[in-house]
Amino acid sequence: MFGREWAAGDGAIAGCRFGEVVITDPVVTARSGSGRHPFPSPGSSSWIEGSVFSLGTADLAARR
């Protein structure tokens, strides 16, 4: 990402779970290879585990 390796830490989004949306647009399904796509959805006692990357203003400015 942004032309270099990034250190990642463990993280989670509390109060969310993965939902699923069905996409029927043939262009989208041809590009992604699937008609079903996950998205975060509210779920009070759930969480989505993943990775956290720290980006600073200088990192974002360098991308422009």
Rank of each mutant, 00 (worst) to 15 (best):
V28M: 10
S34R: 06
V52M: 08
D25G: 10
G50W: 00
C16P: 02
E5K: 14
V21A: 13
L55K: 04
M1W: 08
G3N: 08
F53M: 10
E20D: 11
C16A: 15
T29D: 01
V27S: 10
G15H: 00
P38A: 04
G9M: 09
T57V: 10
G15C: 02
H37F: 13
I13H: 00
L55C: 06
D59I: 00
A7Q: 14
D10G: 14
S44M: 09
F2N: 13
R63H: 11
A8L: 14
T24S: 12
G35S: 14
T57K: 08
A14E: 10
F18K: 05
A12S: 13
T57D: 11
R64W: 07
P42L: 05
S32N: 05
D25N: 15
P42H: 05
G33Y: 02
A12C: 07
A7C: 06
L60N: 06
D25A: 07
A12F: 02
S51W: 10
R4E: 06
R63Q: 12
D10A: 15
G3M: 03
E49T: 09
I13Y: 00
V27I: 13
D10I: 05
A14K: 09
I23Q: 10
R36M: 07
P38W: 01
S54Q: 13
V52P: 03
V21G: 11
W47P: 03
A7Y: 08
M1R: 12
I13W: 00
A14I: 05
P42M: 05
S44Y: 08
F53K: 02
A8W: 04
S44L: 11
V28Q: 09
V28F: 13
G35D: 14
V28C: 09
P26G: 04
R36K: 13
T57L: 11
F18G: 04
S45P: 06
G56D: 14
A8Q: 12
R64H: 12
G33A: 03
S54V: 14
R4Y: 00
I23V: 14
P26T: 09
D25C: 09
G9P: 06
P38F: 01
S51L: 15
